[in-house]
Amino acid sequence: MDATYKPILRYVDVIPAKHEGKPVFLLRDPVGIIEDVVVVPQNVVFLLPLMDGKHDLRDLQVEATKRFGEIVPLEEIIKIVNFLDEKGFLWSKNFEEIKSKAYENWLSLPLRPMAHAKQAYPLSASEAKFFIDDILKLCNPDSSKPPKILIAPHIDIRAGAKAFAESYNRFKIPSGSRVIIFGVGHHLDLPWSVLTKDLATPFGVVKNDRGGLLYLSNSKKIELFPNHIAHKLEHSIEFQILFLHHLLKDEFVILPFLIGPLIIFFEDKTKELVEKFIEALSELIDDRTYIILGIDFCHLGPRYGDPFEVSEAYIKKILETDKSLLELTFNGKSEDFLNETKKLTPMKICGLSCLYLVNLLLNKLNIKGEYQIFYQEAIPFGQGSVVSVVSAGYHF
């Protein structure tokens, strides 16, 4: 490695912590390709933003020298960069080799293990049952017909407990149903990715819809981008499965998709894929098929990069934005949806692509149903920051 090398840091979580009594930062791979958490001293973290492929090692050395007020040997910079590369946190040949092995291990798993048990929810079946039952007690809605399309949050279950309760208390669907799940792929770089594996929960194993999967892949020959490694740690589907398995036992199958960012759907090369995808999905919609969206809505405040704290007045605007978005989703034209949502970029709504696919699907089926918002909330999530969630359903 010479002085002209320009390191590129991968997208990683940088978490302040303490190690052996000293302030440090932890580097964590949110996708799960790298399983180890790496400890980085606080006094070198300032170098990470410079590892952007534009600055070489001399640039890093100059910045370090300015920071410490004395010459930092180039060898020290090389040592830091080599360490990050060895651990798989830089884009490099070494990372590609690590990634290849990680995919090999991931694809060999017979089912998707729980990624968030013991943190987001209990691991044991008995404790998980009490945990979910306590949440479901937060509301007692009328026992009306379950919605064909359900919107539920994917925020931390404890923080969003009321919204989860409002959604899943209304989702007592018949035995033998198929549930198509659209979950936000926070780290997915594709339009979507289906998971073909069964999924583990504290209650056992939830079966994948093999019939639906074969129909899409073999009969319709749809590009499904199966089993992207983003499924490994993503929580947006996992949290829905937890509630479903508790409520429905083993009497249902799932067809789970992670959905990538909306910007991908603006690309010309994606449009034909989307058209075929929606056409194929529309042919799966029948009396025993239901759809769940595991999505959150607006993310605002300092935690999410905004230069302001969210006021009570602004929260009213957030909730009105979410209402308007649902009206557009269920009753708007697809072209209008895209045009309007372009204006919503500052709101940082992570469920837009899932909502767009539902809008396309309803327009394709020419279905005219009715939607109902069961519950809305802007949940405090960090100093002056909020995440808005919605519990809603669509009947047809």
Rank of each mutant, 00 (worst) to 15 (best):
R10F: 06
V14G: 11
P16F: 15
G21S: 02
P23Q: 09
F25I: 09
R28M: 03
E35Y: 03
Q42A: 12
N43L: 13
F46Y: 04
L47C: 02
L48I: 04
L50F: 13
K54C: 08
D59A: 06
L60P: 00
Q61S: 09
E63F: 02
R67Q: 11
F68P: 13
E70Q: 14
E75V: 10
I77W: 01
I80C: 05
N82F: 10
N82P: 12
E86I: 14
K87E: 02
I98Q: 00
K101D: 02
A102L: 09
W106E: 11
S108C: 10
L109F: 11
P110R: 09
A115R: 09
A125N: 05
E127G: 13
K137V: 06
C139P: 01
P141F: 15
S144H: 08
A152L: 04
H154D: 12
H154N: 15
D156S: 10
I157E: 01
A165V: 01
R170T: 08
K172Y: 11
S175Y: 00
I180P: 01
I181E: 03
F182S: 04
H186T: 15
H187R: 15
W192L: 00
K197N: 09
L199D: 03
T201F: 03
T201P: 02
F203N: 01
G204A: 14
V205L: 15
V205E: 05
N208M: 09
G212K: 00
I222Y: 05
E223N: 15
E223G: 06
F225Q: 13
N227P: 13
H228M: 09
I229T: 13
A230Q: 03
H231S: 12
K232N: 13
L233C: 12
I237M: 10
F243K: 08
L244R: 03
L244Q: 05
H245V: 06
K249W: 05
D250Y: 05
D250A: 10
E251G: 08
I254F: 04
P256Q: 12
F257T: 00
L258C: 01
L262V: 12
I264L: 15
I264Y: 14
F265P: 03
F266I: 07
F266Q: 14
K269V: 08
L273S: 07
V274A: 08
E275W: 04
D286S: 11
T289R: 07
I292P: 01
I295E: 07
D296E: 15
C298Y: 13
D306H: 00
D306F: 00
P307N: 08
E309M: 14
V310F: 06
A313D: 10
I315M: 13
K316N: 12
K317Y: 13
I318Q: 05
E320N: 13
D322C: 03
K323C: 05
L326F: 06
L326R: 00
N331H: 15
N331I: 09
K333V: 09
D336G: 10
T345D: 05
C350K: 03
G351T: 06
L352Y: 02
S353F: 00
N363G: 07
L365E: 10
E370R: 08
Y371G: 02
Y371C: 04
Y375T: 14
A378S: 11
Q383H: 15
G384V: 05
V390T: 11
S391Q: 03
A392P: 03
G393P: 00
